[in-house]
């Protein structure tokens, strides 16, 4: 399969938003981790077989340890 390495179409990335915060540009594509990262929501949405999984229930909470040390 080449889909995994094909990445995400930039045109799709233009219209996709984090379903929690819903602001345009709220997602950053992490090609290495195959995730769409929403810093604002603290969530990373996985991409499986080339399909972005835009479900809050399936998203990985971002590691906030670094943020916490400055609390």
């Amino acid at each position: 399969m080449t889909e995994r390495s094909a990445g995400i179409d930039p045109k799709l990335l233009e219209i996709l938003v984090c379903p929690r915060v819903r602001t345009p540009g709220s997602l950053r594509y992490d090609a290495e981790a195959q995730e769409l990262v929403s810093e604002a929501a603290g969530l990373a949405y996985p991409i499986r077989d080339g399909i972005p999984i835009m479900l809050i229930s399936e998203a990985r909470p971002l590691d906030r340890d670094r943020a916490k040390t400055t609390d």
Binding site: L12, L16, V17, P19, I51, P52, M54, L55
Partner: peptide, 11 residues
């Protein structure tokens, strides 16, 4: 895309 119609992941 996998997603929920009640919280669409689009602008």
């Amino acid at each position: 895309v996998q997603g929920d119609s009640e919280t669409l992941p689009f602008a």
